Simulated assay, not measured.
Amino acid sequence: MREAARQMLNKAAPPQRPAMRDINPPPPGATPTATEAAPAPAQEQAQAQATRPNINPATHPAEYAQDILNRMGIKLDLQANLDRAIDIGSVLHPAPAQPLPAGAQFVMGSYSNHAGTRNYKLYIPSSYHGQAVPLLVMLHGCTQNPDDFAAGTQMNQLAEEMGWLVVYPEQTAQANHSKCWNWFNAIDQQRGQGEPSIIAGIARQIIDEYPVNERQVYVAGLSAGGAMAVIAGTLYPELFAAVGVHSGLPFASAQDLPSALSAMKRGVHHAPKAGNGSQPIIVFHGDGDTTVNPRNGEQVMEQRLHHHRGARPRVQSGAVPNGHRYTQTTHTTADGTPVGEHWVVHGAGHAWSGGSALGTYTDAKGPDASREMLRFFRTVS
């Protein structure tokens, strides 16, 4: 998700520059000579203005944001983070159309409410003949779309195997330049408002149109989609029975551009309580992720376990043959009921663990996050 920070700039750049101060020390030995008179206040202001870049936030949002971060004392090289290559063995390319099993469908749909309109694609397995089935809402990451995300996660293949419906809401470039879900906006962290209301509305529309088992409705996502999955699950606990988060961030972990960039870089300084979101949760995060700090995965778990203070952790380690090692921590209540799983994939970057190179931001060397999420969801239902 190299575009994760760039999209926030295009979404959140303010229209007016704040008051500025000179943060650069004078060069060594640059002391005034006897023949150099100290400039008058008006002259000093003019000279300072002449030496500072006149950055237009509308045309140069990255440079503008870097200037703000510098003056706020946040030590973050924004351009380096934007341009850093992500070593995940996957390239950015459109996902090719995948052949469907006989009788299966991958259909387009649309939902609108007061917050806007979003299209989606719904996978219907060949085994579906009107019976009540589970529903999974999958939220893609930045620059992705439903076809790309489905191809990379291979979730449609698992849905075919297990008889699930899977719906992929699609973020628009109009709502966010890089098609990221706007997890860092205050309006998109409130029940009945913004994008969470659209995502919940899409799920309810599918429930109205198909005989979904309403006790088996889940939401999961990657990166910005993972952060939005946490938000949707927290705000709509009566709708979503469990949450899956891959390389995401805690609920309400940012309220503006600087706090969003800071959370991505180093984790949340103080994660707020996650409201009513007490559903079981499964979290995947690579400990080599340089786009969203792995500390965020830990904080997602801490936030959710606030509602389950008596939960007991059980840690086990493993390795994928010719792939990554991982540490899996399962949290259970006193009676053995699982309330959370935290998978740390050692050496993995910002990519869907166990995914296919047919999609973007995937790492085939990790444990199969898609299969483990569905297994977890079935276990806690």
Rank of each mutant, 00 (worst) to 15 (best):
Q154V: 03
E298L: 06
E302V: 15
S262V: 15
R325K: 13
L261P: 11
D67C: 08
N56S: 01
D335W: 10
E44V: 13
L374F: 14
D188W: 03
A85K: 15
G73N: 01
N56M: 04
I68S: 04
T33S: 12
G109C: 05
G29S: 12
A40F: 07
H114W: 12
T362E: 03
P146A: 00
M8R: 06
Y64V: 07
P27I: 00
D148Q: 08
L122V: 01
R17F: 11
A58S: 10
P125D: 07
L100F: 00
R309C: 08
Q328F: 11
G359H: 06
N70F: 11
Q98A: 04
W352C: 04
V217L: 01
S110H: 06
L374T: 07
H308Y: 02
S356N: 05
E238F: 05
I88P: 07
Q49D: 05
Q299W: 11
A159E: 00
N119W: 05
A348D: 08
D208S: 10
H342Q: 15
I187N: 14
Y120I: 03
E63L: 09
D363E: 06
Q43I: 06
L139H: 10
Q255M: 01
S356W: 02
H270V: 13
T35H: 12
E160W: 00
H246S: 14
S126D: 02
L76G: 01
L235T: 03
H60S: 09
N182V: 09
R52Q: 10
D208M: 13
P61A: 04
I124Q: 13
S127W: 04
H93G: 14
P28L: 06
Y111I: 07
N276L: 15
A351H: 14
M138V: 03
Q16C: 11
A95M: 08
V320H: 01
S278M: 11
A62K: 08
G201A: 02
D335C: 02
N276A: 15
Q279N: 08
N119F: 00
P313F: 05
W164L: 08
N156L: 03
P18L: 09
G347N: 00
Q303P: 10
L139A: 14
T59N: 02
G152H: 09
G103R: 13
E160S: 00
N54M: 13
S356I: 04
T117C: 13
S247E: 12
D289I: 12
R84P: 06
G226P: 00
P294A: 05
G73E: 01
Q45V: 15
Q205R: 08
G288Y: 10
V167W: 01
A19F: 13
